[in-house]
Amino acid sequence: MKLPDKRCRIDQAIATIRDGDTVMIGGFGVPGTPMTLIRALVAHGARDLTIIKNDANEPGMGVDHLLRNGQVSRLITTHLGLNSHAIGLMNAGDIRVEFNAQGILAERIRAGGSGICAVLSDIGIGTELAQGKQVVEMAGKPHLVEPALRADVALIHADRADPFGNLAYVATARNFNPLMAMAARCVIAEAETVVPLGALAADAVHTAGVFVDHLAELKELSGDYAVVQR
């Protein structure tokens, strides 16, 4: 037996994204942000997107290209502190922003990828992040109901992959990628290197290829991935 080959052209994979879709995008800052897939989504032009991403990168980088192209109507995130442009769009009412506690965003995504409809947590009780959320009593204490998050598409950046879509991440580029890679109907991964089947040791796989639908090899890394000079 041989595992299927999921390698494809980036533009063909991205072409499945439709107006109004919810798109998860991995990354925490530059590390782990699928810069090439984002550029392809900008070129594709799908609009009215809900983006789920930890942060909005920085002005002129990553997700900010989607914001500047007017493709984003809603952003589910934790922190925009490094992107003044995104904060400006939020304050002007041009995008709707839902802030989550960072670990709760991770757990909501993990639940979405695990077939669990919500998680309960006491994080944020007594703060404005609790406003409007259902409260249930559990273990004698109030907990907030945090609904699972799923997306139509997840865009993932991996360091190494094999043709089946087994993925391995590197350093702090892991962050939300393995969680989002489980939580979307269609998972598109870009990998810096694609090795032959068997060359990525079974023990070294961080995301099992079962979760991945399309895999694109990055022939060369653009400057988008470089160390940010501040």
Binding site: V97, Q102, I123, T127, L129
Partner: peptide
């Protein structure tokens, strides 16, 4: 100033 709470609450 409202950049979001990040991991601060937890």
């Amino acid at each position: 100033f409202s950049p979001g709470v990040g991991g601060g609450i937890e």
